[in-house]
């Protein structure tokens, strides 16, 4: 299931260039079939004050935005062998946009993510939660040079899909794949604690056993790195590890083992795309 039909969310800010550059770079190896530049008009009507500034506009704002996007497409992908088009979405709010994206069967929705920028993330956080598509968050520091891909593995039903996509990217981009599994020695063992090390060893053993199954099923070469979680949220442990290994992309499943349908995305995914994190993240949906 190669990713081939890509949607790029353009918000007409400086982040657009970063996203375009990133995708352009990946496309050198990935050879996408189609790239669509999408802009979502967030207001229902432009207020008169804005329109009055330009009395001699001879076309509606939608088509001006469309022209701008076409220029982007030309600039970044004009020389490449890939089909590009643009879509300016106006009607029906964000739900309607997401339905449209679902219907068009995109394999990946990519968008920019600004760190520490209050209020700018509402749109992308909605897309991440409400869309049924794989979503890629391109952070400001990302340049599309991908050498290491980390996949947090928790053996839930989402893990396999995340690993599959990560493996495909690693193969195509010539990157190293690093599956990690974080073990949390929970407080529930406390009254019965024999020895913390002993419990760790048991948990490690059972994780290794489970990973072996997936490994042979997906024909992976890499072994799983097992890390111990020390009393903080598991996402922090994983993220720190990723920074330590200078990973270029984190690929993870939409939800983890413990996540109920009450959450639209899992707690780890949620924290990975939080504004205080800087690495590009790909959330794989089922």
């Amino acid at each position: 299931m190669k990713l081939s039909k890509i949607a790029l969310m353009m918000d007409l800010s400086d982040m657009d260039k970063i996203v375009l550059n990133y995708i352009k770079k990946i496309n050198e190896n990935y050879k996408f079939d189609q790239i669509t530049l999408i802009h979502f008009i967030e207001v229902e009507n432009f207020p008169d004050e804005v329109l009055k500034l330009y009395p001699d506009l001879d076309e509606p704002i939608e088509s001006i935005i469309g022209d701008e996007l076409k220029e982007y497409a030309q600039e970044f992908f004009g020389q490449e062998d890939v089909k590009t088009d643009v879509h300016v979405h106006k009607k029906g709010g964000i739900e309607n946009l997401l339905e449209w994206i679902d219907r068009e069967n995109y394999d990946l929705v990519a968008m920019g993510k600004k760190p520490n920028h209050y209020g700018s993330g509402t749109f992308s956080s909605k897309v991440a939660r409400l869309s049924n598509n794989n979503t890629l968050f391109v952070s400001e520091i990302a340049r599309g040079e991908i050498n290491k891909i980390m996949v947090p593995v928790d053996f839930s039903s989402y893990t396999n899909n995340a690993l599959k996509i990560a493996k495909e990217s690693a193969d195509l981009l010539g990157a190293e794949l690093i599956p990690v599994h974080a073990i949390k020695v929970g407080m529930q063992y406390f009254p019965f604690i024999k020895d913390k090390k002993e419990i760790m060893k048991e948990l490690e053993k059972s994780a290794a056993k489970k990973y072996k199954k997936i490994k042979s099923k997906l024909k992976l070469k890499e072994d799983c790195v097992i890390i111990e979680d020390i009393d903080q949220h598991i996402s922090k442990t994983i993220y720190d590890r990723a920074v330590f290994e200078s990973v270029d992309l984190i690929v993870l499943g939409n939800k983890g083992k413990a996540d109920d349908s009450e959450f639209l995305i899992g707690s780890v995914a949620e924290r990975m795309i939080a504004p205080d994190k800087n690495l590009p993240v790909l959330i794989v949906k089922n």
Binding site: L12, V43, V50, L53, T122, E262, L264
Partner: peptide, 27 residues
């Protein structure tokens, strides 16, 4: 369950003023 969660996120509003400014700049 997911409907309740969706409603929560959908009710968050965008910063309209800064969006309008961005578009005006582009035009």
């Amino acid at each position: 369950k997911s409907e309740l969660a969706r409603e929560k996120y959908l009710s968050q509003t965008e910063d309209q003023k800064s969006y309008e400014k961005k578009i005006a700049g582009m035009i």
